[in-house]
Amino acid sequence: MIQRNPILDFISHAILILGVVVVFFPIYVTFIGSTQTAQQINASNPISLLPGTNMVESYRFALFGGKTEAGATVSPALPMMGISLASALIIAIGKIAISLLSAFAIVYFRFPFKNLVFWMIFVTLMLPVEVRIGPTYQVISDLKMLNTMSGLTIPLIASATATFLFRQFFMTVPDELVEAARMDGAGPMRFFKDVLLPLSKTSMAALFVIQFIYGWNQYLWPLLVTTDERMYPIVMGIKRLISGEAYIEWNVVMATAILAMLPPAIVVILMQKWFVKGLVDTEK
């Protein structure tokens, strides 16, 4: 039996509370800024920590755009959030689908140089998009995929990490289960669909959360392959709000930042149980 020490409990809780404050305080300041006017933000140094009365106006400009009183033109965030949502979903679902099939082939099929193929996939962990960005951009340009959803997503879909995780999980599936499915007349794809996929639900959920946030937060790759404003994701939209005008509407910038946080936060909250179970539960 583990005895609880009041002093250690106090210290651990104090550290946790301090960590929450450190993480939450910038978000709170951002939200407070989104409720004030740009004049109030620029006039106060430091920024006031009390809510303002301009919340509806700030979020209206952030979502739908328009011309502010200071003459600054604000691009609407709603279409950019749609682009970010579509690309994040395509990247997350595409990564999971390709990784499931590649791991299934590596574990359950016999073909020459199977281990070499796996290690070739695994080695690509050392070659993220940032490292191979030049040749990748050249390929996308040659295929006329600039300013398209396929150009935004396809180069980011392959995932050695997900392939490795699914491979390790498939290797824990008992051989007796494979033999039983074979004796019942199930072919490879039937076994994959009816046995492996249900067993992999929690792993898929955990990877979906990670890959969705990865796709939502992409900035460097969209910056290269998009020149049309209609294909800008929300992260690029925030950057343009800061650097595109001589006079920066900080309240709109902060409102847009809050809006950009919402979809990943909602995904994490809704899938928290599956996410944790997929990472730590050994009996998936």
Rank of each mutant, 00 (worst) to 15 (best):
I157C: 11
A181M: 10
I238Y: 03
A257E: 01
I154E: 06
N42A: 15
Q40Y: 09
A97K: 07
F164E: 08
T163H: 12
S12T: 11
A260Y: 05
I47R: 00
K239F: 09
M1V: 11
L152F: 00
P135N: 04
A162S: 15
M55L: 14
G71P: 06
V29D: 00
F25Y: 15
N45W: 12
G187N: 12
D9N: 11
A206K: 04
Q40F: 10
G185N: 06
L146C: 05
I266W: 00
S102A: 14
H13Y: 13
M149D: 00
L199F: 00
I242H: 05
L116G: 05
V268G: 00
D9K: 10
D281P: 09
A162R: 05
P51A: 02
F104C: 04
K114L: 03
Y108W: 13
I47V: 14
M189D: 06
V131Y: 03
L279W: 04
S141N: 13
A103H: 12
P76D: 04
A260F: 06
I242Y: 07
I11Y: 10
L259N: 10
I32L: 01
E130I: 12
G134E: 04
Q39D: 11
Q168E: 13
E69M: 12
V131K: 01
L241T: 01
R4C: 03
F275M: 10
M261F: 13
F118E: 01
Y232V: 08
I242W: 03
V225R: 02
T153H: 02
A160T: 06
T148Y: 00
I11N: 01
G215H: 04
L85I: 07
S84C: 12
D175S: 14
A62L: 07
T256M: 07
V74K: 01
V117L: 13
L101A: 08
F191T: 08
F122S: 12
V252Q: 01
I7A: 11
S87F: 03
L16V: 10
M189R: 10
E283T: 11
R110A: 08
I93S: 14
P155M: 09
L259G: 09
L279T: 00
Y219G: 00
N45H: 13
F164I: 08
L223P: 00
I266V: 14
I242G: 05
P6C: 06
M145G: 08
D184Q: 10
A260R: 04
I258S: 02
F212I: 04
D175R: 14
T136V: 15
I15K: 09
V276W: 05
Y214S: 12
L156Q: 15
L165P: 07
M171Y: 00
L8H: 07
V173N: 01
A158S: 14
L270H: 03
Q3F: 12
A158Q: 09
S99Y: 14
T73R: 04
F122R: 03
M261D: 02
I15F: 14
P79D: 01
R190K: 15
V267Y: 00
L8K: 13
T136P: 03
E249Q: 15
Q3G: 08
M81C: 10
G134M: 15
A205P: 08
A70C: 02
P6L: 07
F109Q: 12
D228K: 15
I213K: 11
V117T: 09
R110G: 02
R240Q: 13
V56N: 00
V225L: 05
F169I: 06
A97H: 07
G278P: 07
V131F: 06
G187S: 09
S150G: 11
R240G: 06
V268H: 01
Y232T: 11
M149W: 13
S203M: 15
V195I: 15
